[in-house]
């Protein structure tokens, strides 16, 4: 019985590349990873948004209205719904002139218990040290 912890670090802004969306969809895929593993073994994913990546967490995205596509915001909410830890770099949010009020922080409408954690970079760095592998998106 063992757990492999993956840290997904998202550094790129939304909609300019597929990377942030792929980070979220791959992280959400931890929900079904056990079909490939022995009983008791699992893989977990934590996601950290840093640098330009914090822009993925802007709330009220309109990707569905304009492009007919699931927004990054919706993917973040889905990640919260499946109990994935999400960390957002507080300093980088502030560099963009944003505050927590501008960000998607929960997915209450879906019944998610988890919330987005806006924390100093030092805390994210500490969390990532706990991971077995880091994946940069």
């Amino acid at each position: 019985m063992a757990t492999t912890k993956l840290g997904f670090i998202v550094q790129r802004p939304p909609y300019k590349s597929e990377n942030p969306k792929l980070a979220l969809t791959h992280a959400i895929a931890t929900q079904s990873v056990e079909v490939y593993l022995n009983e008791g073994d699992t893989v977990t994913a934590d996601i950290a948004f840093i640098g330009d990546g914090v822009l993925n967490c802007k709330k009220d995205q309109k990707a569905m209205d304009y492009y007919g596509l699931t927004s990054t915001e919706q993917h973040i909410k889905m990640a919260l719904l499946v109990d994935i830890n999400i960390w957002v770099c507080k300093e980088d949010v502030e560099k963009f002139g944003l505050s927590e009020d501008d960000l998607v922080l929960d997915a209450e409408e879906f019944g998610a218990d988890m919330t987005v954690n806006v924390v100093p970079y030092s805390e994210i760095s500490k969390k990532m040290e706990e991971m077995n592998h880091l994946l940069f998106f």
């Binding site: 791959h26 895929a29 079904s32 592998h133």
Partner: peptide, 15 residues
């Protein structure tokens, strides 16, 4: 599906 990749990391020495 994407979970295959995650499962592969389980037994990987390096990713």
């Amino acid at each position: 599906s994407m979970d295959w990749y995650l499962a592969s990391t389980f037994s990987a020495d390096r990713v």
